[in-house]
Write a protein that binds this DNA or RNA. Sequence first.
DNA 1: TCGTTTCACTTTTTT
DNA 2: AGTGAAACGA
Length: 885
Amino acid sequence: MPTDDLPDFLADDNLPSKLDGVREEDDPILDGLTEPQKQAVLHTEGPLLILAAAGSGKTRVITRRIAQIIKQGTPPWNILALTFTNKAAGEMRERVTVQICGPQPPEQHTPDGEILKRPTDPQMRGLTVTTFHSLCARLLRRYAERANIEGLKPDYTIYDSSDQMAAMKKVLKAMSLQATNWPPRTVLSAISNAKNKLMDAKKYEANAFDYYSKQIAKIYLRYEAVLKQAGAIDFDDLLLYAVKMLETNSDIHNELASRWRHLMIDEYQDTNSVQFRLTSLLAAPPAPLPGMEHEPQSLNICAVGDPDQAIYGWRGADISNILDFENHFPGAKTILLGENFRSSAFILAAADSLIKKNNKRRDKPLFTSTTGGEPIAVIRVNNERHEGELVTDYFQRLHDDEGIQWKDMAVFYRTNALSRVIEDSMRSAGIPYKIARGTAFFDREEIKTTIAYLRVIANQADAISLLRVVNTPTRGIGKATLDVIQNAAIRANITLFEGLTRSKELGLSPRAVTSIDKFVTMINQWTGEGSFMGASVPSTLHELVERVITESGLEAHYKKQAKASGNETDEERLDNLSELITSARDFEREYDPANDPAAFTDPQAATTGDMGQVPELLAMLRAYLESIALVADADAVDTTSGSVTLMTLHASKGLEFPAVAMIALEEGTLPHSRANESQAELEEERRLAFVGITRAMKHLQITSANRRTIRGMTERTIPSRFLEEIGTEGIIVSDQTDVDFGAGERTGEYDDAFAPGHGSALRSSSNSFRKGSFAGFSPTSGPDSPKHKADLDKINRAREQRLANIVPRPTIACTHNTPTTPTSPKASSDATTTYPQGCIVRHPQFGEGTVMKTTAGSNARVIVEFKSVGRKTLVLEYARLKRVR
DNA sequence: TCGTTTCACTTTTTT
DNA sequence: AGTGAAACGA
């Protein structure tokens, strides 16, 4: 196959006959592509690096390239595409299918509304498009036992961060280390970093010379032992163990590397050392196979990424993987996709201006053939609630005036905690919204517990999950009893579950023994004593889940709670549990062992459905638990649902929206204060802002708040440096903060708290478009580039109009009590803790004082006579008052 | 043993 | 503010 220039490439491949002899322009695979895009699609042999700038049609190119490879006669079965999220993988699979098989029929529904599974198109059979973690999980499930990797069995449990935390606490306790000196979180992140650099516990120990690392090494070893005993591995282990397996088992390595002749990796800038190692191993068999000529340059590895969008350095991602691609893979061709097809020229100019401020960067072109666009609005506001109102006003306006649909709008923020206030605004404005938090559902207490039951069923050695469920709901197996059994189990070197089955030997109270027996019998019934056979064993996955929920007593427990307290959350819990049953039912429908890379290694086996001797229920349960363990926040993005999407900047990568609001562009938040230790970290924050801006297609609003309450503390903020760095072209800056009274910062004093909750008409007119309003940041007055003259004129007209509309702002006296619209019923009810006159309260800053007077209603105020500073008027919602007497 | 209260501490991002 | 763990009382 020729590679670079392909005037006649169509002649020698096996196109469907109707396309024979057509001109290149009519080829659906090359249709509408630019020259560099075509090159990328057609370069199917040998290493290829595609440096794809934001919005340069990257996904399109990958999809077409896969289609092209298949069209050239490579069976889909020989292709592996790796992504970082399930959603990205799913979309890619879908788009390749459409490209090759044409538009897919819509989902079919049965009369009772159930969705019928759409069968995998036979042409797509065996195409592997998945995430790094899923791939490894499946490979380990399939091969680890045979490869003898750390005694890992196919029933292993994947520990999420809370399980890791529980395991680590156990370790630290066993080593009698103080949690204050050895915070579990810190230790875990040290271990995670090590794992991401391919350092297992032994290697780490060998390289530990100072006291601290030696200690970490000891903890690391113990932690690994605890996981091993539980038959569990953590996220990082998934990759690490898979690499170990390939390194130590050349037959498996050969098998896989020769299966996947074409490798594509998306978001390559975010790969870490382990991922790099893994892809290198998969790209090349250890030795040429008989009958298979193998030269270095025949490695069909294609990496796609953008160094400017590297935002996972903190997770061990190594940007040099992409920068050194040409060195790692000799003979690699590099193709630059620099033309942006997504954003308006103004948005692109801002993004480009920002990213140019990074020093450690290979400058690369980022350009568009369009000009102008809607101006970017950069607005300084009073506080987070004011910000929320501005976001909802903005979206409402776009919706009503411009006809933009809710699903085409998104709010981005640096930290998850920032979503709350936006949610409140959305709710009170009546705008439908969804938060992209894939893990949120599975983080709920009741769901976690049920999942823990399922994990114990799949893997009885899993002590962490067992401890979670053994006395939930309470069944008389208390801490003291468990301590005895745990110690006995450790001494006898048996699992905790085995310890439970032998509780009679431990001289426990008959009462405790009875409770334990009942528990063990219950588990055994579900598993058929581990055989997954017999009359008492549920026949389907959703039936198993259903029975766990009822027979464990969880359902009864929450029902009782709901009845006793009338508590809404307990009702919710019951709903969630039935949703979990639904999710299991959905999984049953979707589950296709033949499409599971772990389930077969060649097409022959696929047809025989070779899953070993594993009973179907168990196999499905394992796959279900695995899928749950590997959901990402970004997977929950659903841009078809007719709602505005709220998400972190990290989750926004790879997406695009016609309208975007970025919030909290403040020093300490973006760039985040925790990422301020080095230049590298600051540059990563800048890339994060860059990613956010480049998601926006037409409309972009960026806000920063004068004051922000974080963890109950209201503080003044400084606008983010990034606001200056985006330049001035096509940007309207406005300051919509109220007059600052200057006094009483961070105290919840009257003047601060006054601003939120008033009609937005008043505020949006106040101080608008004050020139040079903050941080040396001058508003755009226009003209420089004649290219954008028309648009800039438009901006100026808009500004003039706004200025003309400004109504003089009424002077606000401190006693003036303007009627307010409650921001949300919830917020005001939270704040109506009443303080009777004369009671003694404590303020975090002013100390103790006596309550003189209180006013009720929303924005309730209280006048307190403080010992230290005298009489103050405080807003209850803001002032963190504590009642002393 | 269980349930409530209090206190201390915190998460920046996530597979 | 919200969570999780320890402490306390029943």
